[in-house]
Nucleic acid binder design. Structure first.
Lengths: 159, 159
DNA sequence: TCGCAGTTGTTGACATGACAGGAAGGTGAT
DNA sequence: ATCACCTTCCTGTCATGTCAACAACTGCGA
């Protein structure tokens, strides 16, 4: 669509176009590869992995639902659906919250714990193989800077 | 999970961890913002936009379904479902292929053409505002190099 | 010409996640 | 204590995308 006649539109230059397309390609292919590796090696989706590994971050592997959703940057609706599915698979459990009758506590089951312990090395190896080890330390730092430049100017969806 | 006792696992260093997390954050938030802008400004999803703008790439806005799927890097199943939905909205049309009885040709309708003509400036402005204009020319080039370093080492899903 | 393996596209079943709406519990002013 | 309002979580519904199965058709070798 860059051949439109509208002179008021600042179309992307070839270099800009290329950077944008390369980023989109990276996103598409890298994510697909990591998801394939993860499900092949562990039977987990990326969402499963994120949820389980976040649960291990605190002692007792016990999170208030709303805090887990905030940490994962998930809507509470998404959390409820996903936790429901993981509960049916025996990876997590729901308990009542002592101090707030509305609240729900999400905990790791023993099976969930075993699962994430088994999954983590494989997933880290996959991230390393397909991403970290492909880039120099300088490139990793450049990417961090780039990502934060963009993210910092995004309208904050936070709280 | 970086505190596991397994000495055979090469966990990510803090810098590596940060680059990986920053990349994931970029992906999540930037994509969400662009999708929000696009649907607000034009009523299209990113998939809709990609399909429509790819259709304009050739004379006559007429693609063989399998080639359109390949160009978009979509499965033929995804294409069939998505084209079906866009057809119901009047944006595209299906025709038979003259030279191959199995084939389908996908074309832009007049409404589809009007829609993408109207959408393109808004979407480019959004990409510019949230992405291109946040980065220096050097950073755009760095990002291209980074993306291609990673993508080039991925197992080729290509044909 | 026949027959059959390979291609092309569609469909149905299912998983995921967004959004809206609602139930249940908490909080604060009066 | 009451009542209005907020918070927290869950559920139904819908859009999207994946996978497997299938139908229709092509093209090639016998």
């Amino acid at each position: 669509m860059s051949d439109s006649g509208d002179p008021g539109v600042r179309w992307l230059s070839p270099d800009e176009q290329r950077a944008w397309q390369d980023y989109r390609q990276l996103k598409r292919l890298l994510d697909a590869q990591l998801a394939r590796d993860l499900v092949r090696d562990t039977g987990l989706s990326e969402a499963d992995y994120d949820a389980l590994s976040t649960l291990t971050e605190v002692d007792g592997q016990r999170w208030r639902a709303s805090e887990l959703a905030a940490r994962l940057e998930w809507s509470t609706s998404r959390l409820a659906h996903h936790i429901g599915r993981m509960e049916r698979r025996g990876l997590v459990a729901r308990e009542n919250c002592d101090t707030d009758g509305r609240g729900a506590m999400i905990t790791l089951t023993e099976e969930g714990l075993q699962t994430i312990r088994r999954a983590a090395p494989a997933h880290v190896a996959s991230v390393r193989h397909h991403f970290v080890d492909r880039l120099t330390p300088e490139q990793l730092e450049q990417l961090s800077d780039i990502a934060r430049s963009v993210v910092d100017h995004l309208p904050t969806p936070r709280t």
